[in-house]
Amino acid sequence: MTDTHALPVRIPTPRHYLMCPPRHFAVEYSINPWMDPSRPVDVELAMRQWTTLRDLYRELGHTVDEVPPQPGLPDMVFAANSGTVVDGRVLGSRFRAPQRAAEAEHFRRWFVEHGFRDVTMPRQINEAEGDFAWTGGLLLAGTGFRTDPGAHAEAQETLGVPVVSLHLVDERYYHLDTALFVLQPEQEAMRAQVAYYPEAFSPGSQRVLRRLFPDAVIANAADAECFGLNGVSDGRHVVLPVETESTGLAGRIAERGYEVRFVDISELRKAGGGPKCCTLEIRK
């Protein structure tokens, strides 16, 4: 039994999120192993699930802005892939799949129209917070399937923060945000807390993660398969797919003093997305 008196006191921090409603959501092509165009998609259900996620963020005290969805861009709901914002600097995205390429300009325009003056569009393939995770002191950067390794150096130069490269080796976890998320950011790297699935990473990257985050929450295969590592934390409240209650990940996170809130995002998972995929964080 967990000694609740020994749990650390977790303080939530108000966040600013950017999201895009899935009004045009569909699975019309396959650009990751989760996408099967032959499976029916219920757009209304996807909208209800997305709305529940958005409303939960607002209930927790966070600001949520919305980018208007565009016809012909069914994956635009996955806003995390469209920009990385640190200290008000914006590094946009450049998608590997041509089906998603046009999304980048819609998000770039949103940032410019909302007063962001330091907006840079990348030259390298860069799928933004899909492959970039800010720990408060370091930018963890994934590569292996989508984002080019050269984008890591470009991010460091553009955002002015140190970058640590991590190599993904399992095609099911094609983005960093399907295999790792930050529970508690801290300026000192080893004080930050993350959760991750080791088998998604190369042996060298696993060693790096163990060195950087000795107190990490370690996920198993069942946790990863339900997109349990595609979570969102405000430092106290952790938003996870409802399936993580039965896999045990939610319990392991709660044992660290966090309060887990569950969402059903199963319809959007048909395109390989979870809570974090739908959520771009704006850090001013």
Rank of each mutant, 00 (worst) to 15 (best):
P74H: 10
R146M: 07
V182N: 14
E103Q: 12
H167F: 06
R100D: 04
V67D: 07
M121K: 00
H167Q: 14
E186I: 00
S93H: 07
G115K: 06
F95G: 07
E127I: 12
E129L: 04
R108M: 07
M76T: 08
D170K: 12
Y174F: 15
E186Y: 10
G160I: 03
L183M: 08
F95R: 11
A128K: 05
T143E: 14
A133C: 13
R94A: 02
P69Q: 00
D170P: 03
G130W: 12
P68Q: 00
E171C: 01
L140P: 06
S93F: 02
A141M: 09
D148K: 02
F132D: 14
E127Q: 01
G115H: 13
V164W: 04
D87W: 01
P122H: 11
A80I: 09
V90P: 10
L138R: 13
V90R: 10
E113Y: 06
P98N: 12
V112S: 05
G88V: 00
P69N: 00
G115L: 11
G83A: 14
A79H: 03
G130E: 13
L166S: 09
G136T: 06
F116Y: 15
G115N: 13
P149G: 03
V67C: 04
G130M: 12
L168P: 00
M76R: 00
P98M: 08
T120D: 09
V112Q: 13
R123S: 14
V85Y: 05
F95Q: 12
F78D: 05
E113V: 01
A133H: 02
G142A: 09
L138T: 02
M76W: 03
A80E: 07
E129D: 13
T135N: 03
A79F: 06
A133F: 05
